[in-house]
Design a protein around this nucleic acid. Structure first.
Lengths: 122, 122, 122, 122
DNA sequence: GTGGTCTAGACCACT
DNA sequence: GTGGTCTAGACCACG
């Protein structure tokens, strides 16, 4: 559980938190059932308001990444392997499609894209 | 000059306009010297405020895509081929890096990425 | 005595327990005088805190479904048939009223409601 | 647009607002494209915090009942008739199922249910 | 003017 | 102790 926020980043803090946790759940770094640290703790450690953390948590729950049990805490949701894989694919497909749209708008060929990925993947 | 705005898209209207024109300039669809329609016209056709259009134009001028000649309007800027290529690369590199970061966070291999691009490039 | 808790359900655990027992008493599945298992046992079997179970029991006693005999445990309360029927009616009326309010708010006719119940009652 | 909140009701204010607007959209009382009053206005009129209103609006947008365009306001979403009907059905089915579950738990027959609805539908 | 985000508190219900 | 809701401000980006 290594969370961090970058206040210079223009993306909202709650979204930054969302992305980090969602990715960790989807990549398997956080396994189902794992308890998350209390909102107040996260809030203090990151130096952001409780509400900001809650806002991220709420989004994560809505999207099925965690379940919250009032009085006892928040836990990584149970996602079976197939489901997890599906969501990884969805997420990546969207990102890939966005890149391809960009490339096409700029008149860049598929080969150039592959080459660029190869060069920058490290 | 085919401009459009998508009101459901959460990206600000002025940014949508910016992206379209910048892409068209970089891909060569808009060649240097081409006059842009008056702000007032664009504003009416798209049903958006003149302020919004002006703000997109300003950003484009700031980034060297447009030049304003007082009294006669806005024109696509002169970009020499090397410069144009550099900027295409910058833009695409940023997009590629974002995708790679995503892929890494999700624990996805480079090969999977290439395969996905191949499949979705149509 | 088949008790269970659903951790995904947002209704508080103590309320889930309350509802199950209240329903069983009102439907006659639990007859007057039947002893309830000790709080400690229920707590262990369901994996919930004793405090939670106690709080459900207290509410049930307050509402006349249970009686506590100090030293010997909790028992299903004596409810005469007329009383039992009244309470079933109260409970159901409330639920029916809620449904009707919903239907009206959505502009749905009474006939549609009857049809839907017929279809879904199995 | 007649909104009201009942502070005595234990359901959260933002949920009360959500339900009212969602119902009005689904029943057709609010037609697609209609602008909603600014959050600040609603907030003042109802005597609740802006954040509470926003929270309801956010949920409504998430669920496709409205779209917000920063800088110009919030509008009832475009829902075609088929989609609208589907969502009305979903909503009502859920409510009906809940009632049926209740009835079954209490050992009440289908006929009794129909009779009760008939009597209380006014 | 609009909505979007954030803070620093508070009070409540649940476990 | 936990999370859930709410308040009364503030500042920013957008149109």
């Amino acid at each position: 559980m290594r969370l961090s926020v970058n206040p210079n980043d223009k993306t909202p803090i709650y979204r930054q938190l969302y992305e980090q946790i969602a990715s960790d759940v989807l990549s398997g770094k956080l396994s189902p059932g794992t308890p998350l640290p209390p909102i107040r703790t996260v809030s203090k450690e990151l130096g952001v308001s409780m509400i900001t953390v809650r806002s991220a948590w709420e989004m994560l729950e809505r999207d099925g990444f965690l379940v919250t049990r009032t009085g006892s805490g928040c836990f990584v949701a149970q996602l079976n392997e197939a489901h997890r894989q599906t969501r990884v694919d969805e997420r990546l497909s969207a990102a890939v499609d966005a890149l391809i749209a960009d490339a096409k708008a700029l008149g860049v060929e598929e080969e150039t894209l592959h080459a660029m990925i190869e060069k920058r993947y490290r």
